[in-house]
Amino acid sequence: MKQSEEVIIVGSGPAGLTAALYSARANLSPLLIEGVPAGGQLMLTTMVENWPGYRDGIMGPELIDTLRAQAERFGSRIVNGQVQRFDLSETPYIVETSDARYETRALIISTGASARLLGLPSEQVLMGHGVSTCATCDGYFFKEKRIAVVGGGDSAMEEALFLTKFASQVTVVHRRDILRASKIMQDKALAHPRITFEWNSIVEDIRDPDKGVVTGIVVRDTKTKVSKELSVDGVFVAIGHTPNTELLTGQLDLDSHGYIQTNTGARTSQSGVFACGDVQDPVYRQAVTAAGSGCMAAIDAERYLEGLPQAAAGKGSEIRSAG
């Protein structure tokens, strides 16, 4: 199957959906390949309190549903699928999913970032059996249980606070003696009666793969070098994210952590290929900055297409003035 497109957007978080909204309003009839799982990290959150315009907050999945409907309203075509291969060596660029192959003149990459794991063999075996990266998905299984949350950033504090709804005790294991989380999240977590902290500690192992279920973790104090076992029923890993750029290695300039390098807006090292959202943002990583960069990518892509020979003439200018 071969289809030729003006703009393909890959990824369906706030960056991709905003890029779709703007491209659709520019009459480019964008095709958005949503990825698996769809919707990005907001799908795994509960109340989002820092999305401007919602004074009392909005649920993450609801925000994504709304953005999606808004993008579709102006003619974005959203398809289910996971990209398996990009070929950016020449135009038109090629994007392949498991069951379709597309060609496109412009490409917007908003594949986001996935939860980073500890990298322990026991973690792999026990994933879904006590190891989790999503408190809102899996917290339910830990009613009156003891839980460890690994990490010291906003996500870790959010997970810890959310899990207190279910757990009898939440222990935050953090490798430093100071949290990286925002002040408001730190204050909430530090003040919570059922959250305790293991400072300067790293997780060495998760028990017990032989039983097929989490029974505890081994943590090592980085200062005293002493290891001890904590008895817990669940481990929630919130130690940051890794950009989803495996398929782009060698095709686009990436930084040393794998983030796509952008310059002068959303442009990447390949002309006609744009990036937005967490896949190119090691610094801010907010829903609103992702959406903002999605808008930039769409405008940059539109201008790029306008400058190409045989560009679909005049598309979009009338529509844009309405926005």
């Binding site: 989790s132 998905c137 899996d138 299984f141």
Partner: peptide, 12 residues
Amino acid sequence: VAGRFSIRGIPT
């Protein structure tokens, strides 16, 4: 049933 198979996350 979920308990019997140590399901602690969904979908599984």
